[in-house]
Amino acid sequence: MPPIPTQTTADVPGQGLAVAAESLYVVNLLLLPGAAFLALWWLHHRHADSAPPLAANHLRQTFRACLWAGVLLVVANLLIIALGGYRTPATWVVVVLYFTCCHSALVLFGVLGLARAMAGKLYRFPLVGAPLLPETGS
């Protein structure tokens, strides 16, 4: 197959910040829940309004997705246990299946976002992401 001219994605403004935001989102889910969210909140608070469109997009998306992750993983599971009863086998069947599927889906969304950030592209989280802003493209 003949070589095709390269599309370069190097030096897209805000790419480093975008990658950092997506990485913190994934770390929050996999390694340091809470601490990584605080770091992401700080980045979002400091840069979301002033960052280049790519970084602003990823900061907004990950911050919102993190909040949703908290609701879906912590609040929803506590509700399931509260409603179903702690010592009921059905509760644990639902909790294990729900938590595993939900957590895996959120991690995979983060992987897709991180891959998009590393390629210098905008991203909207499926289901939990905010709509892209038309005026800035972010």
Partner: peptide, 17 residues
């Protein structure tokens, strides 16, 4: 396996063809 997923999607996002 996490890295493999990131790798595959990153390469497809950066594809030249």
């Amino acid at each position: 396996f996490f890295m493999m997923t990131l790798f595959a999607f990153n390469m497809v996002n950066r594809r030249r063809r």
